Computed example of a mutant assay.
Amino acid sequence: MISARFPRTARVRARSDFDRIFQHGRRVALPVLALHWQASQTPARLGLAVSRKVDPNAVGRNRIKRVLRDTFRKIRGELAAGDYVVVARPAAARSTGPELAAALRGLLQRCGALPAASTSTALPATSLPPTSVDGTMPAASPSAPMPDSGQG
């Protein structure tokens, strides 16, 4: 069982580790975040990259990092072993905390590191309003002639 704390051993800190993950790892991205990851035998570790291009104010950059660290800390026990580096994009500065958390969970699910049916702190699923017609096209009226296929 992995502790809920976020110790130094759970962080990607060395420049050489960042370079290795960027060069040899795989990548998935959203408009808000990009995730680089590389499988390993060690428990999940997180690295963050939030540049001044994302938000020129340190307060904004630190908010983004705080939300991402907290989300990662909560789901770390469910993640596949490996190193994960999250790169924030400029849209992250305009995103709320729950939006950032949902984006991180979505990226981790897309890369296969997090099971799709994650129950811990999952956001409620939104459903589409019911429609009166099943399927994507309206039903054909019974009196309408069938189009000639031109074969025969």
Score class of each variant (00 low, 15 high):
residue 90 P to I: 05
residue 72 F to Q: 01
residue 60 G to A: 09
residue 60 G to K: 03
residue 56 P to V: 11
residue 109 Q to F: 00
residue 92 A to N: 08
residue 147 P to Q: 04
residue 26 R to T: 06
residue 81 A to E: 12
residue 58 A to D: 08
residue 14 A to L: 13
residue 79 L to A: 01
residue 121 T to Q: 13
residue 119 T to A: 12
residue 91 A to I: 10
residue 25 G to D: 01
residue 44 A to K: 02
residue 62 N to H: 09
residue 36 H to C: 08
residue 40 S to V: 01
residue 79 L to M: 04
residue 48 L to C: 04
residue 59 V to Q: 07
residue 125 A to W: 10
residue 137 M to W: 12
residue 76 R to M: 01
residue 147 P to K: 00
residue 120 S to Q: 13
residue 143 S to H: 12
residue 34 A to T: 14
residue 85 V to H: 01
residue 126 T to F: 11
residue 32 V to D: 10
residue 60 G to C: 09
residue 82 G to F: 06
residue 50 V to D: 07
residue 13 R to T: 15
residue 53 K to A: 15
residue 148 D to Y: 09
residue 145 P to D: 10
residue 138 P to Y: 00
residue 19 D to L: 14
residue 14 A to G: 11
residue 33 L to F: 04
residue 123 L to Y: 12
residue 110 R to M: 02
residue 45 R to F: 04
residue 111 C to E: 07
residue 49 A to S: 15
residue 72 F to D: 00
residue 47 G to I: 06
residue 10 A to E: 08
residue 123 L to E: 15
residue 123 L to C: 09
residue 110 R to W: 00
residue 39 A to M: 06
residue 150 G to K: 02
residue 29 A to P: 08
residue 116 A to K: 09
residue 125 A to S: 14
residue 117 A to C: 05
residue 21 I to D: 03
residue 56 P to D: 08
residue 100 L to Q: 04
residue 87 V to P: 02
residue 45 R to L: 10
residue 42 T to N: 12
residue 150 G to M: 02
residue 11 R to K: 12
residue 104 L to N: 04
residue 41 Q to E: 15
residue 22 F to C: 09
residue 70 D to M: 01
residue 17 D to E: 14
residue 87 V to A: 09
residue 22 F to P: 02
residue 18 F to E: 09
residue 21 I to E: 03
residue 12 V to W: 02
residue 88 A to T: 10
residue 100 L to Y: 06
residue 137 M to E: 15
residue 134 D to E: 15
residue 104 L to Y: 04
residue 9 T to F: 05
residue 17 D to I: 07
residue 103 A to I: 10
residue 18 F to M: 09
